[in-house]
Lab assay of single mutants.
Amino acid sequence: MTYKAILNGKTLKGETTTEAVDAATAEKVFKQYANDNGVDGEWTYDDATKTFTVTE
C-alpha cells in the first residue's frame, strides 16, 4: 500500500511517499524522515487518503 506524507516544516516543505504494509509502519518511516530533515511538529493522519501531515 502506498502512503503519503505532507511536510509543512519551517525549513522543509514538500511531499514524499512510501510503500508499507500498514499505517503504523509508514508512520515510523515518515517520522524518521522528518527527524532526519529537522522537522518536528504536530502529526495527523487521514485514513481515507492514506496521508500523514506534519506541521511545525
Rank of each mutant, 00 (worst) to 15 (best):
L12I: 14
W43L: 03
T49F: 05
K28R: 12
A24C: 14
K50N: 08
K10L: 15
D40L: 11
G41Y: 05
A34M: 08
V54S: 02
T18S: 04
T17M: 09
K31R: 14
E42W: 11
K28Y: 08
T25V: 07
Y3F: 13
K28F: 09
T51K: 02
F52V: 01
K10E: 08
I6D: 04
K31S: 04
A34N: 01
K31A: 05
D47F: 09
Y3K: 02
K10W: 11
V39I: 14
A34P: 00
N8E: 07
M1H: 15
T55N: 10
F52W: 07
G9K: 03
E15K: 06
Y3L: 02
V29D: 05
L7V: 09
K13D: 04
V54F: 15
V39R: 02
T55V: 09
G38R: 06
T55H: 07
G14T: 14
V39W: 15
W43M: 03
E19C: 14
L7D: 02
G9Q: 04
A20D: 03
K28L: 12
T44E: 11
D22R: 01
D46V: 05
A26Y: 00
D40H: 14
K31P: 01
Q32S: 09
A23I: 09
T2Y: 09
A23Q: 11
V29N: 07
W43D: 01
T53Y: 13
T17I: 10
G9E: 03
Y3W: 05
K28N: 09
K31W: 07
K4Q: 05
D46S: 05
V39T: 03
E56V: 07
G38A: 06
K31H: 09
E27I: 11
G14L: 15
A5K: 00
V21F: 12
D36A: 13
M1K: 12
N35M: 15
D22L: 03
Q32I: 09
A5S: 04
I6K: 05
Y33W: 15
T18G: 02
W43E: 00
N37R: 14
V21S: 12
D36V: 08
T44P: 00
D46G: 00
A26T: 01
K50C: 06
A26C: 03
A23H: 08
D46M: 04
T49C: 05
K4N: 06
T49S: 11
V54Y: 08
